[in-house]
Structure formats: C-alpha cells, structure tokens
Design a binder for these strands. Structure first.
Length: 288
DNA sequence: CGTCCAGGTCTAC
DNA sequence: GGTAGACCTGGACGC
C-alpha cells in the first residue's frame, strides 16, 4: 500500500465532513466496483489507469481522508486519482449554505456534523449507467448488472469505448440487462464518439440545462434525471420512486402522499429540497 | 405453474 | 398535457 494523499475532512466552507455519512450517503456509491469493509470503515474501489486497474482504499484517519493505492503510481496518475477522489467526496463543495438553512430545523439537527455529501462515482458516465441499472428492477438485479459491468472492466468501471465495442450478446446473456442494454450501449457509443460529453454536466452549467440533457438520454426519465442530478450535487429535485415514496409515508405516518404534496412540503429548502428529502429518508442507514 | 412487481421509461394515442 | 400498455429480468407470492 502506498499513500496517495491525506487531506482534512473539511468542506470548502470549513464545515466538517463525516466520512461514514459520505460513504453511506447513497446506494449507488456502494455498487460494484466499489466495496465496503467495516472496522475500520474502508471504502475501496478500482480505478483504471492506462491498461491496468489500481485498487484504492479510502479511510478516515485522525480527521483526515486517507487514500492508499495497491501499487506505486507515476506522479501524473496520482494527480488524476487524487483529484477524482476529492470530487467523489466533494471535499471542495461548500455545504454551509445548506447547514444554515436547516439550522433551526429539529429534524435535521444531526446533519450539520458532516452529513449531506452524496458520494459520486469517478465519472458522470458511470453514474448515468448505474442509474439506468436501478430502474424498474429489484436492488439485487441492480447489483448483478453493476457487478457484470465491473467484471467487464476487470475491477474498474468500463469506459464508454469499452461498452461501445462490447457486443449486444454480452448485455443480454452476461449482464442480463434486458431492454436496458441498448440504452446503455447507445449512450456509450455517443460518449465514445465524442458526440456526447456527460462529464461537462458537472459544472459551469445551469440545473435546467443539465436536466434537459439528462432527460434526452435513452433510459433516463424523470426519476433518472433527478437521481443523476443528486449524484452531481444538484439538490433541488426530489428523487421520487417506488422506494422513496413509501419510505417517506412510513416515516411521516401517512397512508399516502401525492408527489406534488411531498414536493411542496420540501419547497422551503429551496435549492437543497432534494437533499433534505434524501437525508430524511436515509437517516437510518447508519447509526450515530 | 402463472401472476405480480421491484429504487421506470418509451411510444402511441 | 395525461394515460395505457409493453418491456427484460428474477425473486416473491398464490394456486
């Protein structure tokens, strides 16, 4: 194990970042090629560097985020992985505005000690593909599909070029992605051809335009767009699906609630409405 | 065994 | 603009 970097778990506004809360912030974060080891809590995943796969372990250590690699890297490769990890953990995001907004809210008293950072994948492409793998199926199927993708990438998530040149039969017979296969392969081809630049959706562009671009992708509808935007740190939209709706009702002790009603009750959180909704639903994912 | 449906989307009215 | 039906897959049910 060689040290890649060690940086304070502090946001751009100086606010504390909980490593555990970040790692457990979203189901997608834990899908293959990522794995989670307990005590000490370790987030591990593969990164493709050139022809090889580098396994990286991330842990909290003395208030820092420490990342170690399975082997020594050239300094240029180290720089790429370090900047990717900073982005995944959102070390350079400023959540102090969100924390101010929920400061007076009893329901979110637990949040300001470091919750609210949604762990992202290294690429927007990966988050888009994984999101398609969450639609219209049980979570176990999502795990199976993403495991197949990870295997295809030999322990790292496959890039657009690899997915573009992988035959339809693999999607059908190995990944068993069903009708999702053509969606994913179409997106992969466009990314690989340079006709589509998903990574550009990360910043310097308005939410509305990002949403429009996402909805234009095959296999991405209202749920998928909101889901990817959440992984991009764009938190106005609520992720409403067959998991979040009943969970919300159960927590609130309601029989049922229309989407419009749920949205209205979170409107007061403004650009963070979706984040407030998500945090309320995932409060019980780890104990304090 | 058949039906239903799970962290939806697309197409055709 | 809203809604019905189809769609791959596989696990959970009821019969």
């Amino acid at each position: 194990m060689t040290l890649l970097f060690e940086a304070p778990l502090r946001g751009a506004g100086g606010e504390p970042i909980s490593f555990g809360r970040t790692v457990y912030s979203h189901g997608c974060a834990q899908l293959p090629p990522a794995t989670l080891l307990e005590s000490p809590l370790t987030y591990r995943r593969g990164f493709r560097i050139g022809k090889g796969v580098i396994n990286v372990e991330m842990q909290e250590r003395g208030g820092n985020l420490r990342a170690r690699a399975s082997e020594r890297l050239r300094s240029r490769d180290t720089a790429v992985i370090v900047s990717t990890i900073r982005r995944m953990f959102r070390l350079d995001d400023d959540l102090s505005g969100f924390y101010r907004r929920i400061a007076a809210d009893e329901r979110f008293a637990w949040v300001t000690c470091g919750a609210g950072r949604i762990l992202a994948s290294p690429s927007v492409f990966e988050d888009v593909v994984k999101t398609i793998c969450t639609t219209n199926c049980a979570w176990s199927a999502t795990e199976r599909m993403t495991q197949a993708l990870s295997d295809l990438g030999e322990g790292a998530f496959p890039d657009g070029a690899l997915l573009a040149r992988t035959p339809d039969s693999w999607y059908r017979e190995v990944a068993r992605m069903g009708y999702r296969g053509p969606y994913v392969r179409t997106i992969a081809r466009e990314v690989s051809d340079g006709r589509l630049d998903l990574e550009s959706l990360r910043d310097g562009i308005a939410d509305a335009e990002v949403e429009r671009a996402l909805l234009a992708l095959p296999g991405i509808g209202p749920y998928g767009a909101a889901h990817v935007m959440q992984l991009l740190g764009r938190h106005r939209q609520l992720v409403l699906d067959s998991w979040t709706r009943p969970k919300y009702c159960r927590l609130m002790g309601k029989k049922k609630a229309a989407d419009s009603t749920i949205r209205r009750s979170f409107a007061r959180y403004g650009e963070y409405a979706g984040l407030a909704f998500w945090l309320l639903l995932t409060r019980d994912w780890i104990e304090d």
